[in-house]
Computed example of a mutant assay.
Amino acid sequence: MVAPDVSVYEAAGGEAGMLALAHAWHERVLADEVVAHAFSHGYDPHHTQRLAAYWGEALGGPPTFTDAYGTESDVVRMHSGNGVHEEMDDRAAACFDAALDDVGLDGELRTTLHAYFAWATRTTMAAHPDSPEDVPDGLSVPRWSWNGLVAA
């Protein structure tokens, strides 16, 4: 069992752990015939670093993402306006689980990280299928702990 005073971010290896996980996930999704479609029109060359910073912030790490890259509203807008895509979401989650294997994360940490990714993929990132213009300003990166979503 993980000590309750250790954040999910710290237990996953901090900044280096998030970067390794983001890299492993990105490699997995680019190799997946369904999920890769989301990247078919190109992507920021710093996608992996941005993703690692985002996950790190969401999982109890420093506010690197919001300090350097943008807001939750920006992230949700990037993922909005693409219709409902449950198969892609399911396959992205399967890629995430495989990435957890790739970087050697297991046990309670794996369960917690899987729960976070599944929740984020199917809620906040899928909340506005019709248009990015539907996303409100002022959203904050949701925080996730060993017990799930942290109340704002």
Rank of each mutant, 00 (worst) to 15 (best):
M1D: 05
A3Q: 10
A3E: 15
S7N: 07
E10R: 06
A11C: 06
A12D: 11
G14I: 00
E15R: 07
E15V: 13
A16F: 01
A22V: 02
A22F: 07
H23R: 15
E27M: 14
R28N: 09
L30E: 06
E33D: 15
V34G: 01
A36C: 12
H37F: 10
H37P: 02
D44V: 00
D44I: 04
T48C: 06
Q49S: 12
A52C: 08
A53T: 08
W55R: 10
W55N: 13
E57V: 07
L59A: 13
L59N: 08
G60I: 14
G61D: 11
D67Y: 13
T71W: 00
S73E: 15
V75T: 04
G81H: 07
G83F: 07
D89K: 13
A92I: 06
A94R: 13
C95N: 09
C95R: 07
F96K: 09
D102H: 10
D106W: 00
E108P: 13
R110K: 11
T111V: 14
T112M: 11
L113P: 03
H114K: 15
W119K: 10
T123H: 13
M125G: 01
S131N: 05
P132Q: 05
P136G: 03
D137P: 04
D137I: 00
P142L: 02
P142S: 00
R143G: 06
G148F: 05
V150A: 02
A151R: 09
